[in-house]
Structures are given as C-alpha cells and as structure tokens.
Design a binder for these strands. Structure first.
Lengths: 339, 339
DNA sequence: CCCTGGCACTCTGCCGCCACGAGTGCCAAG
DNA sequence: CTTGGCACTCGTGGCGGCAGAGTGCCAGGG
C-alpha cells in the first residue's frame, strides 16, 4: 500500500521530469497526478525515495530529479512499452521499402530511427559471420593483380585487391573461381573459414600458391571486418537536450565518432532477444555517463545480424523510445530475412 | 603606402581574432604587430576599414572583428598557403597507406582531414561518371532474381537486386554477362550509358527482355547514385568554436546531416583545380551563414573524381586549413590514380 | 499508525545599481 | 599624415535585496 504509492510517486516524478526537464516538487506533483493525497504526504514519500537513492535534489530546496537508480527502477517495473500508432507503423514500412540495396537499408533505418525517436540513432551493418557466402567473384585487374568480390546472402559485398605471386591467365582465374565457389558457396561464414583454410591442400599443385593467397585474403576479409561498421544519424538531436549536457556535448560527440564505442554500445545488445536499456554509467563509457542507450538486435531470431539503437539523454521517453527501436528492428529483420 | 598599411592592419586583425576569438582593439594591435605607428593612427585606419565594410564592431566601444568581406579579402590577397611540416606530410601518407579498399580510403581521408584541421571534414565518394567500368557480374539468387554487381576501375562496387520477367538458367546468365561485359567493359561511364541503351537491339530476340531489364538497372545505378554519397567526420570539433555558434549549432548539425547540402558544398568545388573558400553567406546555405567552407576536388587532374573539404567557423586558420585540404586531396588522388 | 495543514528555513534566480575598464572618435598640434 | 590627449560610450562583473519555490519538521486529527 504504502510501498505502492511510493512507486507511483517515483513514476510521476520521472514522467514529469522527462516532459519538463525541471526538478519536480511535491505540490505540483500532488496536483497534476491524481495521487489522492496531500503534498505533505508526497513529501514524506519523496524523502523516503531519496533515502533509498532513487531521486535526488540538485540543490537544497529545489524539486527532485531521478537518479540513475531511479530511472532503472522506472524502466524495469514502472513502464510498459508504449505501442506505436498505426500511422507510425505504416511510415516505418513505407520508408524502408524504398531501399535499393543493403547499404541503403542501413542508411534508411538509421535515419528513420533518429526521426522517430528524435535522438541519435545507431545501426550496425549486418555481421558477416552469421550470413552465408552467396558468391565469390574474381576479376583480373592486370596479370599480377586480382580483385576479389565476396557476396553474402544478406546482400553485403566485400571487396579486396589481391597482389598475386606470379601472373595468371583467364583460364586459371576461372578455375580458381570455380574452386572457391565450390567449396564456400552456401556456407555460413563461421564454417567457411575452416573450409577455406583446408582448400589449398586438395587441389592441383600449380594452383596452390594462388589459392593460398586468395584464401588468406578471404579469411582476412571475413574475420577482420566483420561487425566493424556502423551508421549514425540524428546527432543534431543532441542539441535538443543541450541544457542537460552543455559542455559535455563535445565529449559525447567525440565518443560517438568512435566506431569502437558504438559497437560496444549496440553490438552487445545484439545477442539479447529483447530491447535492452543502459542508463547513465551503465553504458560503461565515461563520456556517456549522462546518457542512456536503448538497443536491440535485429534479424534472424536469437543470433541476430546486428544491433541497432539510440543514444539520448537519461531524461528520455523510455516507453516510446523502446517501442520505436523494437519496431524498426522488427521490420528491418523481416526485410533482410525475406531477401 | 597608406593603402598598404591598411591591408596590413586588416591582416593583423584577422590573425589576432582567429587566435583569440576576441574583438581586437587599436592598442593591442599596435603593440603586438610591428606596424611602426601609434594606436591613434591604427584607429584611423580601422575607421576607414569599417567604412569600407571589412570590419565591424559587435557593439560600440569594443574592438573590431572581420566581416565576411574582410575574411574574403584576407583569403584572396593577404594569406598564402602555409606549407605543411614534413611530419604532417609523413603522417598523411602513412595514415592513408593502410587502407584496404575504396570505402576505407574515403573513411580514412575524412578522419584524417578532421584531425589535421580540427574541423568538420567532408569527403565525397568518387564519382562513377568519371571512372570506367571494369567488370559486371551477374549472380543468380533464385530463378526470378539476379544480383547485379558493377565494378569500376577506381574500385567502387555498386550492387542491385533485379527481378526479371521470366526464369533464366545459368547458361543464359552467362550469355548476358558476356554481352554486358563485352559492350561496357573499359568504357567511361558517361559513354557506357549510350552503349547500354543500344545493346538490346543488337542481340538474339529471346535475350532482349532480360537485357532490357538489366541495362535499365545498370543505367539507373550509374546515373542515379553517382556522386550521391559523402562521408563526414569531426562534428565534435564544432563544439570547439561553440562560443561563436551556440544556439545555431543545432541547425548546423542538421544541415550537415543532409547529403544534398554537403554535396552542394563540396561537390561544386570538384571542378575547380584549386582549393576554393566560401565564407559565410557565400556558402548559400542559410544554416551555415556563420561558417566557412574550404574545399577542393581530388583525383585525375581537371575532371576530378570527387570533392573534399572542411566546414568550420568563419574565424578559422585559412592558410593552415587550405594547406591541409590541398595536401590530403593530393595524396588521395595519387592513391586512387595508382590503383 | 498514517495523513494533513501550518510554519520556519534555505536556496536559486532575477533585478537594479554602480564602478571599472577597454575602446572609440575627435581635435589640435607637430 | 601622424600623434598624443581627452571626453564619451557601453559592456562586464560584483553586490545586495527581494520574491518564489520547495523542503523539513511538528503537532493535531482520523
């Protein structure tokens, strides 16, 4: 009873603060939300909530604002996931449908997510390791140089220029192409690496040096760059909450330019099946200690193709943001799955 | 004589203001720069310069700051291009050398440029229209769907999924591949479009519908997306000059997220052989009226592959920035030319 | 035992005030 | 044409006081 009302008070504080960005006091709280008790009672509850570390006051005799811990409780127990409107769902679908290729899907998703949430959006390019090899193409640039193009079933294309030990003619190139495709096509990339490593041992001796060089490059392309790239959009939205950050804005922007940091933020959400929220210091990135990250994986059930999410002020509309992230991830997953 | 000293005064004002970001007064000016005249004389010159519109005062009885017109004169007549240090040249070279493919070159260039100039850097992906077709590959996804991959001699790869009117077998795909490559390989893309359009008329009737579909897609890929993409880095540097922008920061960031705007800014610099500077309103973008753009083309002499440049506060180190932009463009051009 | 109204207290933010200093413009003399 | 002097302007920063919002605590009532 008592416990319950306290939580209600916390919810009210979070919701009001998210809207107004101003410390919220007992009086306005009792007025605006039908709590059925007087400001004095609310004060007592707030005092208790502060004791327990869920809220704090920026300075004596100002209203209260939620702490990291307060937001955490709010997200875990007090908020559902606000469903999107029909119009929003429609918009997502039609916006993504126009995509012409994989890169375009990613770029569109990230812009879409930024617009929907009015925050900074991050989308990881689909990981190579989960998808499978669809085709390997070798193009002769000149007798000593080949261009290797690797196409996956998610439509991703990787390219590498390869210098080879001795000149080859087109016939040999054709053979090599056949061998590589024969042994790798249709394989998951995780498995393909093994097959590629064994390949040179099984063929005509004169082809071996070439094949060794080529498979090395293939492996390199598969392993080294997998999951490496992310797309970013909506940084302008950071200034929307500028009052909060102000001088930390620069460090936030710097952090967001580091691919490594972004991958850490959303890459890890990839494996969880649901939308995860990291609040303040939970992000484990110092520059982002005053922000929250809402992220999820997309595509192909439990072992996802990649992660996507948004970065915004701790003071954010969690239910709405979570809903948007979930919805976009779902549509993108379907889009890539159907491809 | 008199004219000459006035220009010297303007230069001194620009240089001081760029360093200090504070309106500069007659006294400090006469002290710091060996002008050989008294503050009173400088005042007269400043008064004249203000009359002519080169400088202005933010408020009565503060120092002067340069106007757009003042910066323009400074750039045109008063500043050379400060040469880079040996170490900087070395750094550029070694930083770019590690690139594994075309995308990587672009991404590395843009980061490099942002770091060197400590400003926002923009690099356009090499335009398709100047480069030539190296290879066209067709991969069967399923009987009704083909993946078309187009490779240019700059190493750029474009991909498109094509739905075809009726199922095809591998033999036909092979023929189509042969036809497309036969007629397009080695051609400049500008010419290739014509050749592609004529192609269907010259072949066996049963191949025509496929070829028509495919060439349509090829043309689309070539025309529609050429020059479309740009890479961006260093937005965090905008906050460095935050005092200047403050509330316009948001609009600047928003403008920088628009590919169209970026292309307008640096795409146009592509055709000029030298580094061009647009100051303030000269950018023709309202949100960027308090910024300057230093841009140039890169690659292949007069008809460049693309543009690159930086966006920063009007109050910027023009000689240094121009030198950095020019140097990076030169190296990138060499890198892509040698490929 | 919990809720409530009242009251004193403590901050912050804002406004007006004033003095200071930087910088200018003008003028008369060299 | 340059220079030094001088009066004037105006933004900045420190100070004090006032109002408002919000709290904590206490005593009384259900």
């Amino acid at each position: 009873m008592l416990e319950e009302r306290r939580l209600e008070v916390l919810r009210a504080i979070v919701e009001d603060f998210v809207l107004s960005n101003e410390p919220v006091g007992s009086k306005t709280l009792a007025e605006r939300h039908a709590l059925g008790v007087s400001p004095a009672t609310v004060r007592n509850d707030m005092s208790a909530l502060e004791e327990e570390g869920y809220i704090t006051q920026p300075h004596t005799s100002a209203g209260r604002i939620p702490t990291d811990k307060g937001y955490r409780l709010f997200v875990d127990r007090l908020s559902g996931v606000k469903p999107l409107s029909r119009a929003e769902r429609k918009a997502i679908q039609s916006f993504l449908e126009g995509a012409v290729d994989l890169d375009d899907v990613v770029r569109r998703s990230v812009r879409l997510l930024a617009q929907l949430t009015r925050q900074v959006a991050v989308v990881q390019y689909p990981s190579l390791s989960i998808s499978s090899v669809r085709h390997i193409e070798i193009v002769t640039l000149n007798p000593n140089r080949l261009l290797l193009v690797l196409i996956t079933d998610t439509g991703r294309v990787e390219q590498r220029v390869v210098d080879i030990p001795a000149p080859v003619d087109d016939g040999v190139v054709g053979e090599l192409r056949g061998l590589l495709n024969g042994s790798l096509r249709g394989r998951r990339i995780a498995d393909a690496t093994e097959a590629a490593a064994d390949l040179p041992d099984t063929v005509r001796p004169d082809l071996r040096p070439y094949l060794t060089t080529l498979t090395t490059v293939v492996l390199e392309a598969l392993l080294e760059r997998q999951e490496e790239r992310v797309a970013l959009a909506g940084t302008a939205n950071l200034t929307r909450a500028s009052v909060d950050f102000a001088d930390s804005l620069r460090f936030i922007l710097e952090a967001l330019e580091e691919q490594v940091v972004l991958l850490k933020l959303i890459g890890s959400a990839r494996e969880t099946g649901t939308v995860t929220v990291r609040i303040g210091r939970e992000t484990d990135v110092d520059a982002l200690r005053s922000t929250s990250v809402v992220a999820t994986g997309y595509g192909l059930g439990p072992a996802a193709l990649g992660g996507m999410g948004v970065v915004g002020p701790m003071r954010m509309d969690y239910p709405g943001t979570m809903a948007a992230v979930r919805a976009v991830a779902k549509y993108v997953g379907e889009l890539l799955g159907a491809d």
